[in-house]
Structure formats: C-alpha cells, structure tokens
Nucleic acid binder design. Structure first.
Length: 875
RNA sequence: GGGAGUUUAGCUCAGCUGGUUUAGAGCAUCUGCCUUACAAGCAGAGGGUCGGGGGUUCGAAUCCCUCAACUCCCA
C-alpha cells in the first residue's frame, strides 16, 4: 500500500476525535484514582473562537492529556458564561435591526428573545473547541444560567446578605449613559484624550470685585458646584478661608473650604467641588458635609438642575456653556490639556461618575484568606511575578458593586414592600420574601404587594462560583463529586482577569468550601499580531482559528501557538509558526514511512545499530527527565521544544540514519523492534501536544487491540541514565560533523567513500567507531602512531584525525582555517591563564572551579601544540 | 501621580541562589545538495562589546546604584 508522502491531517483528525468520543475517554466519574481537574474559563455563550481561546485551551488540553497518561482521573469541565452585558448588548442590537426597541418590551418578552438568541448562537464556540482536539468532558458542560447553577448564585447572594456582606448603598458608580447601567471599575478603560482646561472666575461673596479663578475640564458641571476648595497651605488664598463664592450662571453661594487634597500647582490652585459628578469631589463632599446636586439624567442629558440646559446632552452643554460663560465675562481663558477619561469597555461611551443606589459586596474581610493563601504559596501563580500585582490589588481591595441595570442575568432576589429606604427583604422566593416582609413591617403583605428588584447581578458574581457550582457544591453540599474533584488542580487564564475572576474564585472557595479552588494558576499572555498589536475583532488582525486548522491541521496549529509562548509573556503570533508545527507533524509522518517500509529478515544485528540503540535509550531518558521537570514548572513551550528536538534531531537526524539499512536492504528484527519501541515512546511524549498525528501513527505502527489507544497509554517511566554512553557519543558526533565539513569544503560527494586515520594522543574509546564509519561513509578507519601527510585533518578531544585526499586539498585554505582556530584557542587560553595567574582567584575560588580552569588550560595548550605542528607540516 | 515588570543574535526566548558560558535554542538568513522517509527535506556556516553608565567582587548577562526605552496594573 502506498503511504502518502505528506501527512494529511483532515480526515485523521475527524476520525480520531470521533473515536475518542465513542470510547468515552473524555468522561470522568469519581473513582479510586487520583483526580486531576481543570475547569475551563467559560467563554461567552455567544462568542466565537479567537486566538486567545486557542492558546488558552491548547495549554489546558496539553495538561489534561498528560495527566490522563500519568494514570490520573483527568476531568476537564467545559461550559459557557452568560456574559450579561455583552450578550444583552448583542440582543438589543439584533432587535433594533428588526425595528424592536428594548424599551417597548416587557422583561419577559425581552428574555424570550434573549434565550432564542442564546439557543441559536450559544455553544458554537464549544463545537469549535472540538476541532482543536479539546478533550473536555462534554457530558459536564455547564452554563452559568442553568437552573441549578442559578440557584447557587442566588443562594450565595442571600447568604452574603444574611452575613452582612451584601449591602445596598448610595455610591459613586461608573455609569454608562449609553447602556444605562453601572459598570465595574474593571470595565472602564482610561484613555488619554486631548481636551481643554477652562479657567472660570467666581466672585467672592460680599465683595464688589474680588474674584477667584478655577480650572476645570468639565464646565458643564459648574451648575452642580457646592463648594470651592483650596489648599490650606496656599498663601494666595489664605484670606478666603471661611468665605463664600458665587457660582456663575446659577448665582448660588457656596462655601470656600480648605483641604490638602488640592494640588497648588495644578491650574490655579482653586478646585470647584461637584460631589455628584466626581469621585474625589464626592469624598470631599462627605468630609465637609456638602450638598450634592445631581445634574444628569441616566442618559447623560441634563435634568432640571441644569436650568435652561435641561434636556440637552452633556457634551452639547459643554460647548454652549463655554459660550455663555464667555459672553457673560466669566471665562478667563482656555488651554489645551491632556487628561485621562474613562470609557465603557462595552459601549465606548464616556463614563459618568454618578451617585446611585446599588448593591455591594463588602470585600475587605472576604479577601483576607484569598490574599494570605496566594502569598504563602498554597496557591501558586505561574509565573510568580503576578503575585506582586495580586497582592497590591488585594491589599487595597474596594467593595464590589454587583448590581447591573440589565435584564439578562440573575435577577437580584431583593423584594420591596414599601417606599422607604429600608422597606425591602432579601429572599430566594417570593413566598419567603412575603413572610420576611410581614415580619419586618408588621403588616399583612401579599405577594402581589412585593416588587422584585429590577437589576441583575454582575456576571462575575456567578462565575466566581464556577469551580464549585459545576460540581453542585453549594446546592448539594458535600456531594461525592465536589468532594472528589475539588480543589481542582490547575487554572489556565489570562492575567487581565486576575481580579475579575481569579481572585474572586479564590475568595468564594475559602468562604464557601473553606479551601482553595485550584492549586496552580497558569497565566497566558496576550496574543498579538506581527506588529505587536493585540488581536481584536475591530482591527481585523486576528486569523480565524478554524481556517488555520484547515490549512495546517489542528496539531500543526497547536504546536505553532505553543512553540513560543512562555507563561505570562505576550505571544506575537504569525502563521509561519503553524507552518513549523505542520512541518513537524509531517516530519514524524515521514519517519514512520521510513520505518514502515523496511523488510525484516533474520540477520545479525550490526554493531553500529547496537550502539545506536544504546545511545538513543540513554538520550531519550535524559530528555524525558527534562521534559517532566519542565512540565512540573509549567514551562510548557520549553517542554514542547525539548520534544521537538528529541524527535527531529536525535531520533530522525541521528538515530534513524545510524540504523538505516542501505537502499532496498532488509533490517534485522532486533533493531526494528527497538526502533518501534522508541517510536512509540516518542509518540507518547508528543501526544499531549499533537494528539491526532500521535494517535494515527500509534495505530499505523503496530496492530492494536481494541482499546489500545495512545490517549490512554502510559506516560514513559524515567530510568537511570548511563551518562558515559552519552559523552562518548558526543565525541563521535563531533568526528562525524568534522568529516562532513571536510566533504563540504573539498566538494566531495556523499557517495564517495573516505579513509580516516586517527592518531590518538590519549586513550580513545572505540565504542562508536562503527557508527563513525557508517555515518561518515568511510571505507576504512584506522589508528596510526604517526601523522598522515597530504591529508585534511582535524582535532577532536585531543586526538588528530586525518582524511587523505591530497589531490584536492587547498593548502592555503587549510592554513587559514588552522590559523583562525589557533587565534581563538590562544585567546581562550589567555583568558584562562589570566584567571589562574590571579593569586586571589586561586586562593578565593572553590577548589573545583580552579581545577576546571586548570583543565581548560591544559586542553588549550595541547590543542595549540597540535595546531602549530599542523601548520609547520603544511609548510 | 503610585506600583510592578521587561530590555540577551533579524524575530521569539533560555541562561536557577555570580565561576566548565571570549553567551545557548528554535525560527529566519547564507552556502552546497532533488543523497528514493521527508525540498513541509538533508548537510554545513555566519550572526550578539547580554539597553547606556557606574559600583561590589579574585571573577558579573547574573548582585547593587543610576539613566533611558517599552509594557502592564492601580488612581
């Protein structure tokens, strides 16, 4: 049967994925084995796969597949997140295209549309993950709005409320006037924008013509001013302390207060204070008991406090008020100014700090165990540098605003029974709420009198329970699965969501199960394009992962994306890396083609093959130990590189060439069997990274019994290494490379057999001579006591090697080469000798270090002598 | 404004508590080969004063200080 010259991934991938599914290999149930668990960072339910997912999920699959081979009960839980803001925005947009306004729908009608949308687009991303080869336990697929999951979210809200950790309060929130919702601090992007600084003068009350000038970037908020603030140390304004100023246009009188918060150098050193519309002013307002005047409607237009500007948008008012201030003589001047403005991550609207009644989680106490257990190493971050960032945040943690003015999500289980600020209860159901309300109010209240809070919970308020709720750890406490799978092992995610998600999962873990949610957190980098830009939909610079898989094969893409992505570093992605990955799968494919084509016969095993096998055995063991170590340290791409080199360089370029019989020659069975064993072990190491081609060749290489699949094969065992074999081979390798160089320099074809004479200057091990003869294509290898004239020569490990080829030798070129080597060696010798001449070095450095330097000196001296001798011979 | 991190070959990165490192790998580059496993390949080669400056030390890519550039987080 003709085996194709290049590996064709498409069909094999589909076949093997289906095979794995049929065999139920991805499914896990608790048993007596050690569990190994990963919960997927749930992608947005309506999302599509992008390169960031590819990186993230490939790493998870590598970890889970290796764990499976190590004999652990591997469980990778997949699922999706309802992503309230993003999904609701998409549904609103889709309805708008159909001419339906959200405001025309009831909550139930809107949710019906939303669920339709979710059913249509939801889960596409999970199907895409299958193409990548993700070995998730699909029977465990969860969605953050599934009934039982939602129960756990509501339970936690009620519980935290009972513990006094959830409270309702007026707070300055980041208001998105477009989405008409509060957004969390983390969803605000600060950008530098060119704006203007307006210098406006306020009259000092009780004077005829004394003015003070303030500088502001937001003149439209003047109408909400309730104080002027100066620095108490500012001599320019000392006389004004305790006086009042008249706010332009409104003619309101406001106090002049003094606080060190004001920077004397900024602007004029006078700050206008608008507690309703700036977080710092709000704090000042609290401190000085100032009035707050809220100027804006929810949509960013001015309300009645805005006087004649009522109903106009904040940015229009900025322009108009500038003109009015100017016309009335209040505007002193304007300056160009660069300041940072917050934008909504979702709608890109300018965020308006706004006082609003919201629900909060009080974080300080909850955060403590989460901080401690990362700092003390119970939970490990990879790379560790992220601990610093984490600590900084956790030590300064602020209360978490968890209410969102949206419909898509978990509705807040608070029920209002009256107009008073405290006329509400928190309960899971209307019935419970009713009895609580009766109790609280002392009145007879019917269910229809209760009005449930309109808001939903922040999406992260459900995803922080992910590692617990996918095992129903809250709704069915202490169940078999939560006991078995929790704490999970490794979490693979992006550093951007360290606070949104990672920190909060840790908090929830300690609060609800008294234990960490995972032992290791592996932070991936951001996938960037060649120009270093973050890959994003809006830039259109992100390749479609599915296209890449079709072009290079899933294995090729997996290798391409992992080959240069150390933990925590950004990954500049270029599709040429996938090409490298595809080439790798093809290389292995062809190695198989070679091995499969040999005809076995009962032959004596050549010496060179015996040595090759002994060498590769040891080489494999060495690299295996390295790979295991790299995995333990989460240095995934380095582990991949080690495997890549082991397969390509050691196995294909060296080992197979060493044992390869001549063209159309048979092979002895011992060598063939050993080779197939090696091949199997290599496939095992490859399998986590390139599962498809590994499974394919596993089955091609040998006839397999039912169920003998590489996905559940046993990861190779580490054995002790005979390092002397390795060092002997290194010398043989160097001799062979030198022979090849002689061929190349003299234009001698590979087919032409050469003679090699060796003058040993010390004991030379001859174990690999047969390998040298074969790989160098020698007709003769002989040990001599005299140097050989008219020969190309080289020195390896103190011995001289001669290849007579008098006719073509280029004496000048040869001399030049020797001189170059001589210069280098002399330079090297000099640096070593300088060290050794230094008495303080000899006295101060450890004995071993000095001994090493002495050996370097001796070797260099011997080499120089040989080189100089060669030069004289050449004349 | 506060904090953290990064800076080693054209690119992406190794190089642990300073000493077999006049610095390694992969890719890219260059040269020669279509040698029947693979040109998606083989063989060989070139390429870095380790961001600049200063210091500690017998010895610094590695430790300290300083300057510069870039990145991220927080306000």
């Amino acid at each position: 049967m003709e085996i194709p010259k290049t590996y064709e991934p498409g069909k094999a991938e589909e076949r093997w994925y289906q095979h794995w599914l049929n065999k139920n290999y991805f499914h896990s149930t608790p048993d007596e084995r050690e569990p190994y668990t990963i919960v997927i960072p749930p992608p947005n339910v309506t999302g599509v796969l992008h390169m960031g997912h590819m990186l993230n999920n490939t790493i998870q699959d590598v970890l889970i597949r290796r764990a499976r081979m190590l004999g652990k009960n591997a469980c990778w839980v997949p699922g999706t997140d309802h992503a309230s803001i993003a999904t609701e925005a998409k549904v609103v947009q889709k309805l708008r295209q159909e001419g339906i306004k959200k405001s025309d729908l009831t909550r139930d009608e809107f949710l019906k549309h939303a669920f339709e949308w979710k059913d249509k687009h939801g889960g596409i991303i999970l199907e895409q993950l299958k193409k990548l080869g993700a070995s998730c336990d699909w029977e465990r697929t969860h969605f953050t709005m599934d009934a039982e999951y939602s129960d756990s979210v509501i339970d936690v809200f009620v519980d935290l409320f009972k513990k006094g950790k959830v409270y309702r309060g007026v707070r300055m929130v980041n208001w998105d006037p477009e989405a008409l919702t509060a957004v969390s601090d983390e969803e605000v992007l600060y950008k530098e924008v060119n704006s203007r600084l307006f210098y406006v003068r306020y009259k000092v009350a009780g004077t005829d013509d004394e003015w003070l000038t303030i500088a502001t970037t937001r003149p439209e908020t003047i109408l909400g001013d309730t104080a002027i603030c100066v620095n108490p140390n500012d001599v320019r304004y000392k006389h004004l302390h305790g006086k009042s100023a008249i706010v332009p246009l409104t003619n309101r009188e406001v106090p002049i207060i003094a606080d060190e918060y004001v920077e004397m150098e900024f602007g004029t050193g006078c700050l206008k204070v608008t507690p309703a519309h700036d977080i710092n002013d709000y704090e000042l307002g609290k401190k000085f008991n100032l009035a707050t005047i809220d100027l804006f409607n929810d949509n960013g237009a001015l309300n009645a406090h805005g006087l004649h500007y009522e109903g106009k948008d904040r940015f229009d008012v900025r322009k108009e008020i500038e003109k009015e201030l100017h016309d009335k003589g209040y505007l002193v001047k304007t300056e160009d100014h660069i300041n940072k403005v917050g934008f909504s991550e979702r709608t890109n609207a300018v965020i308006e700090p706004k006082l609003s009644l919201q629900w909060f989680v009080s974080m300080k106490e909850l955060a403590q165990p989460a901080l401690d257990n990362v700092m003390n190493g119970n939970i490990q971050f990879h790379p560790e540098k992220f601990k610093n960032t984490y600590r900084h945040w956790m030590e300064n943690v602020k209360d978490w605003c968890i209410s969102r003015q949206l419909w898509w999500g978990h509705r807040i289980p608070a029920w209002y029974f009256g107009p008073g600020a405290n006329d509400y209860v928190v309960a899971k159901t209307a019935e419970e709420a009713q009895s609580l309300a009766k109790e609280k109010s002392g009145k007879d209240i019917s269910i229809s009198d209760l009005k449930q809070d309109e808001d939903v919970l922040d999406t992260w308020f459900s995803s922080w329970l992910w590692p617990i709720s996918v095992f129903n750890g809250l709704t069915r406490p202490g169940n078999e699965e939560i006991k078995y799978y929790y704490p999970t092992n490794d979490l693979v995610t992006a550093p951007e969501i360290m606070f949104f998600w990672v920190a909060r999962m840790i908090i929830a873990g300690y609060e609800y199960l008294g234990d960490l949610p995972f032992k290791n957190v592996y932070y991936t980098g951001i996938v960037r394009d060649k120009l270093g830009r973050k890959m994003s939909k809006s830039l259109g610079n992100s390749p479609d992962p599915i296209d890449l898989i079709e072009k290079y094969g899933a294995d090729g893409v997996r290798v391409g994306i992992l080959i240069s992505s150390p933990a925590g570093n950004d990954l500049p992605f270029d599709s040429s890396q996938c090409e490298q990955g595809r080439n790798f799968t093809n290389k292995v494919w062809n190695a198989y083609r070679l091995v499969s084509a040999w005809e076995v016969r009962e032959l004596e095993q050549p010496k060179s093959s015996v040595m090759a096998i002994e060498w590769f055995e040891n080489r494999f063991q060495t690299v295996l130990a390295e790979i295991n170590d790299l995995f333990d340290k989460f240095r995934i791409s380095e582990a991949l590189m080690a495997i890549y080199k082991l397969v390509w360089d050691d196995f294909c370029s060296w080992y197979l060439e060493m044992i390869k019989p001549g063209y159309e020659q048979p092979i002895d069975s011992k060598t063939l069997e050993a080779t197939k064993d090696f091949f199997e072990n290599l496939l095992k190491l490859m399998h986590p990274f390139t599962p498809f081609v590994a499974e394919e060749l596993w089955h091609q290489l040998r006839n397999r019994a039912e169920g003998d699949d590489i996905i559940i094969a046993k990861w190779p065992e580490v054995k002790t290494v005979n390092s002397s074999v390795l060092s002997k081979f290194t010398i043989a390798e160097e001799v062979i490379t030198n022979i090849r160089n002689v061929r190349k320099n003299n234009n001698i074809a590979n087919k032409v057999k050469l003679e090699l004479f060796v003058r040993k200057n010390k004991d030379v091990d001859t174990a690999f001579d047969s390998v040298i003869v074969k790989m160098g294509n020698l007709s003769l290898m002989e040990y001599v006591s005299e140097k050989v004239n008219n020969a190309n020569s080289f020195i390896v490990d103190g011995s001289e090697y001669f290849i007579p080829f008098g006719d073509t030798i280029d004496v000048e070129a040869e001399k030049e080469k020797i001189n170059e080597e001589l210069t280098y060696t002399k330079g090297f010798l000099k640096s070593v000798q300088e060290k050794l001449k230094n008495e303080r070095f000899v006295a101060g450095a450890p004995e071993q270090v000095v001994a090493v330097e002495r050996k370097k000196e001796a070797d260099a001296l011997a080499k120089i002598a040989l080189l100089e001798e060669k030069l004289t011979t050449l004349g």
